[in-house]
Write a protein that binds this DNA or RNA. Structure first.
Lengths: 220, 220
DNA sequence: CGCACTATTGACAGCATTCAACATCAGTGG
DNA sequence: CCACTGATGTTGAATGCTGTCAATAGTGCG
């Protein structure tokens, strides 16, 4: 134990050591709700494997997915006493779960933990702001292209252009502010053009990343 | 000076005292750029009077306004070494300006300042997430209604239903992901219906807040 | 007064949605 | 192992909301 905070460790190491001591593993089945909008915010999570959708609902059933949490991502930090989002497992998912109170206390004592929390929040804000541009100012084709590029940049492992899609078409549509039909049509078009390949509904191969980047902002 | 941190002060008071010591006043003329996306993030600002638009641009000129900073709001905290947004004064604007380095150091020492920064970031994230729902899932009418209600809730002073609009119609359009023409048409429609009144282009009176709230989610 | 900028209104077009039919997939039980 | 079934995905046709283009009106400042 006395080795935990020696100067031989880097900041990320010290953060992991500090957080490891208070985290516990939680499992969630596909389509289970992890927490709902309005629930008391008691925990912060980190995805180990699987995938989680973070969304907001309107009374009439319309849904906007704010973010997908994939392996390595934290979620649930948007705390304001109560969660502002609903979190649902898109597939069977493993998470590490931290008590809010303990995390807060740890953050007060440990500068590295504080920096980690702060950095997560900053990243989420950055992501939300980029997402705003997509929803406010881009066409269906641009949205889908941007989404695929995001996944490409975020992927942790595996073949370089092979993407895993834990989310359904409906999830993608609700993330991009489109209908499921429009998402399908754009994917089909990209496939016809040889930009992507769709082996099955939960995976996708990018054949021409450059063409995707072009599709992301212009298209003539 | 010794009185600055006695227990007779509340946390907000202590925060103000600590921040007051490192803030300086800055003035910006209408349409001046305060900082641009990609600039080194050296300062954090707080609006005293006027109004600032925070936006992102696409190469082809499309623009998405992420947030309006009105009196009392902080902006520029989204720092990641470099600003992710462009900040422009919509009207002649007065701000208090804090050096990033000094603010960071102050935050390390002072728990209240830290909480204030954290809280600002959390608020920005919360606002961006609500904005996502508007851009992703709401109609033109719903967007405009939601925007007006936001302003109504944020207004600091003045007659209860009288709104100040420091932004142009184009700014509103770029905030809501619409065109200027659509914003105009919706405003005209709301006026015809007696929901609002438009004395001049930079002010607006809400005659029927309940109707606005209805227009915000449904419409039948 | 005149000019540039901003806002409003109308006519028309286009992209994404809606509605509908069909195909494919995954899980279950025979 | 295969048939059955509900969920998910794909494709087509038609509608409609919002965007585009264009003309006009209003505003503010030199």
């Amino acid at each position: 134990m006395s080795v935990a905070f020696t100067s031989t460790q880097s900041a990320p190491d010290r953060t992991r050591a500090a957080l490891g001591s208070i985290g516990s593993v939680s499992l969630f089945d596909r389509n289970n709700t992890i927490f709902a909008e309005g629930d008391e915010a008691e925990h912060v999570y980190k995805v180990v494997s699987g995938g989680v959708r973070l969304c907001k609902m309107l009374q009439d059933g319309r849904r906007q997915i704010v973010e997908f949490a994939l392996p390595g991502d934290y979620f649930g930090i948007d705390w304001l006493e109560r969660h502002a989002l609903t979190a649902e497992a898109m597939v069977d998912t493993t998470t590490v779960c931290y008590g809010r109170g303990r995390l807060t206390r740890l953050g007060d004592e440990n500068r590295d933990v504080r920096a980690e929390i702060f950095s997560t929040l900053r990243h989420d804000l950055w992501a939300a702001q980029n997402h705003l541009v997509i929803l406010g100012r881009q066409s269906a084709r641009e949205r889908v292209a941007a989404f695929l590029l995001q996944l490409l940049e975020r992927r942790r492992e595996g073949a370089k252009n092979k993407l895993d899609l834990p989310m359904t078409r409906q999830d993608i549509a609700d993330y991009l502010g489109l209908t499921i039909e429009t998402v399908c049509r754009v994917l089909t078009a990209l496939k016809r053009e040889g930009v992507i390949d769709i082996p099955d509904r939960h995976s996708l191969t990018v054949r021409n990343a450059e063409a995707l980047e072009d599709a992301c902002t212009a298209e003539d």
